[in-house]
Amino acid sequence: MVDTKNDTKGSQKLGLGQALLLTTLFAMLVFAIVWGMLAWTSAEGAEMSIHGWIALTLGTTFSLVIGCGLMALMFYSSRSGYDDTATPKFRKPDAPTK
């Protein structure tokens, strides 16, 4: 006989707080999408000069280079063992000395 009241494998019902949080987050998402669409379509007649395009290109390129560079440094640091001393509880025990 299976006890269905204490079965943790089945789906759980949302509590009032969780439902309220999900509703609030969904409303914020809808608001952001609507606001973005209105902002995008409100600037139909605006044109950007060549200086604006250069600034946009340089800013985007710089952000991507910095982001990729920092991620590469993070992976290099993690794989080469530099991060081991920063977390002593995960450090492997030293080999016994004779």
Rank of each mutant, 00 (worst) to 15 (best):
D84Q: 11
R79N: 14
F26A: 14
T41V: 12
A95I: 10
V34A: 06
L38M: 08
E44V: 10
V2T: 07
L73S: 05
F62W: 11
P93L: 03
G81V: 01
T4S: 09
S78E: 14
L58D: 12
T87V: 11
A27C: 08
F31D: 01
F90I: 04
S42E: 04
S63I: 10
R79G: 15
T57A: 15
T60W: 04
S49R: 00
P96T: 04
N6S: 06
R91L: 06
F62A: 14
S49V: 00
G45R: 05
P96G: 02
I54Y: 06
Y82A: 13
R91T: 04
I54L: 07
A72T: 09
S78K: 14
Q12G: 13
G15P: 03
I66M: 04
L20A: 14
M48L: 12
K89Y: 11
L73P: 01
T4C: 12
S77K: 07
T87H: 09
I33N: 01
G17F: 01
T87P: 02
C68N: 07
D3Y: 01
P93F: 03
A72K: 06
R79E: 14
M71L: 13
A32Y: 02
A39K: 06
G15Y: 01
L70T: 00
S11R: 15
T41D: 06
S78Q: 15
G36C: 02
H51C: 03
I33G: 00
T97Y: 10
L29N: 08
K98N: 12
A86Q: 12
E44S: 11
M37T: 08
S77G: 15
A27L: 13
T60A: 13
L20N: 09
G81R: 00
V2I: 14
I50Y: 11
D84G: 02
A39C: 07
V2L: 12
S77D: 07
S49L: 02
M71C: 04
V2H: 09
K9H: 07
V2G: 07
G59N: 11
F31K: 03
F90E: 14
L21V: 07
S42Y: 05
G10H: 12
